[in-house]
């Protein structure tokens, strides 16, 4: 082996952890900065391959908007091998980043429309990038409504952000939890997030919906949106699969002929027609 500066598709760039914050008992928010000082250069909906030596890599959505310069944020759930190690990292530690990768939200298709941003669990992380973007460019979108469902009050992500989004007046936010843990002082709605849709007034001619959440959530939410008359070409969703490379080579993320890491993670629902096992 030779020491070499050659950069390969598979060699990560070094990034420094600028700050770490607890979001829930299982999720933490990491703010990172690329060590060479460059911007990540992503778009809302994209992800990075987070690399830790000895722990390989994992795909993580970028939770901050490209309009926030200097740093980017990753909200990471402790789910296993790499994410468990990430949770041990502290401010000042270095990790590796490859990317950004993947098909982002097509902003051009969302401009000037009313947006319904629906998420469950960890799904709020990629959506936050879009929400921040909408907040930073308020004139570009119609009314933006955020629907968010968490497992229970303890697991509500981005609590402060949610409050701030409501306070800013740019968004309306509806929150629900699957069930309330005993002893919690939570006073909001309970039930699944798709149940929030039926009571909304939606103008199907002018509205686009974005859905990000666990696999089980998609069917139910899509059914509700269909009830409201929303066509498939205005429903966007972000799918997750196991990803080992992020660049369309390793094959772990395929859904029939689609590569989730390249053709997705963001898909327009009509593109998935006839694709078995997509949702």
């Amino acid at each position: 082996m030779n020491a070499s500066a050659t950069v390969s598709l598979y060699t990560p760039r070094a990034a420094e952890i600028v700050s770490v914050a607890d979001l829930t008992p299982e999720e933490r928010l990491f703010r990172l900065r690329l060590c060479d000082g460059s911007e990540l250069g992503h778009q809302p909906g994209q992800f990075v391959q987070l690399s830790i030596p000895g722990f390989t890599e994992a795909p993580i959505s970028i939770a901050s908007s490209p309009s926030r310069k200097g740093c980017f944020e990753l909200a990471i759930r402790r789910a296993g091998f790499l994410t468990g190690e990430m949770h041990l990292k502290k401010t000042g530690d270095l990790v590796g980043i490859r990317g950004p990768f993947g098909n982002p939200f097509n902003l051009a298709e969302l401009f000037d429309r009313e947006l319904l941003l629906i998420s469950g669990g960890c799904g709020l992380a990629p959506l936050r990038s879009l929400i921040q973007y909408c907040g930073d460019f308020p004139g570009r979108f119609g009314r933006v409504r955020i629907l968010y469902g968490a497992r229970n009050p303890e697991f509500i992500l981005f609590r402060d952000d949610l409050q701030q989004w409501i306070d800013s007046g740019s968004f309306s936010c509806s929150l629900t939890v699957d069930n309330v843990t005993s002893g919690s002082c939570y006073e909001g709605a309970t039930g699944f997030v798709h149940n929030l849709i039926s009571t909304l007034d939606i103008n199907p001619a002018d509205c686009s919906a974005v859905i990000v959440g666990p696999p089980l959530m998609y069917r139910a939410v899509i059914d509700q949106l269909h009830c409201k008359g929303l066509p498939d070409d205005r429903i966007f969703l972000s799918l997750e699969r196991q990803m080992r490379c992020g660049v369309g080579k390793c094959g772990h993320c395929t859904i029939d002929h689609l590569y989730c890491c390249q053709d997705g993670p963001v898909f327009r629902l009509d593109q998935l027609a006839g694709v078995k096992g997509a949702i």
Partner: peptide
């Protein structure tokens, strides 16, 4: 067939990241 998995091996003096054939 081109699918692969990724593995890290940490030796005392170096890290090696390799890819190896995987199977669907």
């Amino acid at each position: 067939c081109t699918c692969f998995g990724v593995q890290d091996w940490r030796y005392a003096d170096r890290l090696e990241r390799s890819r190896m054939w995987d199977s669907c």
